[in-house]
């Protein structure tokens, strides 16, 4: 399970870089425990909404309120935990 979680976190890092066009960072430079919004990466409310759309598209998990979004996007590890909770197969898929 832990291996699956780490794989998911790595996947999310790459997807975040792609979705938000973060051309000046690499996945291994992203700290999964660091706050996303207002943190070092300069992520704002519109970025969170782009991520919400990506999560719905790629993981079929819906985040439909601003409050939930703020909780779930507190950090990448928080996001990964939420995805595993809502769609357990994401932590075990290839």
């Amino acid at each position: 399970m832990r291996g699956g979680m780490q794989k998911l976190i790595d996947e999310l890092k790459h997807k975040m870089i792609e979705t938000l066009n973060l051309t000046d960072v690499t996945a291994d430079q992203i700290d999964e425990h660091a706050p996303l919004v207002g943190g070092e990466l300069g992520i704002d409310s519109i970025d969170v909404l782009e991520m919400v759309m990506m999560i719905e598209k790629d993981y079929q998990v819906v985040i439909d309120s601003k409050d939930l979004g703020e909780k779930v996007f507190a950090s990448l590890s928080a996001l990964a935990r939420y995805l595993v909770e809502k769609a357990p197969e994401t932590a075990t898929r290839d």
């Binding site: 519109i46 970025d47 909404l49 782009e50 759309m53 719905e56 598209k57």
Partner: peptide, 13 residues
């Protein structure tokens, strides 16, 4: 392409 399902917030803005 998504039949009205997905719309990019930053493209809208």
């Amino acid at each position: 392409a998504s039949h009205g399902q997905f719309a990019s917030p930053s493209d809208f803005v």
